[in-house]
């Protein structure tokens, strides 16, 4: 039940965000500090989510050449930087993880 309430609330929230300026054009203005801050929101939130996925193992720092997720993630960062392509980044990162896991296990 809670999952459904969360989904509906998240849907309303997302829709309200999309509708905001379209519906109230000219009546609301974005404060300039907020406009400047919004630019940083996507990279900041997404990085805060994926960094622990690469650097932590069960909540503990895992800095080692045995950390397949860290190595595959670093390769994916290079691929994303050079190609700017979502599909290449995911496919190459995933293949790297599988190969590394195969050798480390």
């Amino acid at each position: 039940m809670i999952i459904w309430l969360t989904i509906i609330a998240a849907g309303i929230l997302t829709y309200a965000t999309r509708l905001s300026f379209i519906l109230f054009y000219g009546q609301i203005r974005m404060p300039s500090l907020m406009e400047r801050a919004l630019r940083f929101v996507p990279p900041v939130v997404l990085t805060a989510i994926f960094f622990p996925e690469l650097l932590l193992n069960d909540g503990n720092l895992f800095l080692s050449f045995g950390n397949a997720r860290l190595l595959a993630g670093m390769l994916a960062i290079v691929v994303a930087w050079r190609t700017k392509n979502v599909v290449y980044t995911i496919v190459i990162g995933m293949l790297a993880l599988w190969i590394l896991q195969f050798f480390f296990s």
Binding site: F40, P43, V44, A48, I49, F50, W81, N85, T89
Partner: peptide, 28 residues
């Protein structure tokens, strides 16, 4: 792991200057 990879694919090309790089690194 595709989640982390998707975010890498979205974040890295969006980092275009020192400010966004610093912001992302600090947050991470």
């Amino acid at each position: 792991f595709t989640l982390a990879l998707t975010f890498i694919a979205l974040v890295v090309p969006a980092i275009k200057d020192r400010a966004s790089l610093g912001a992302a690194l600090a947050a991470g």
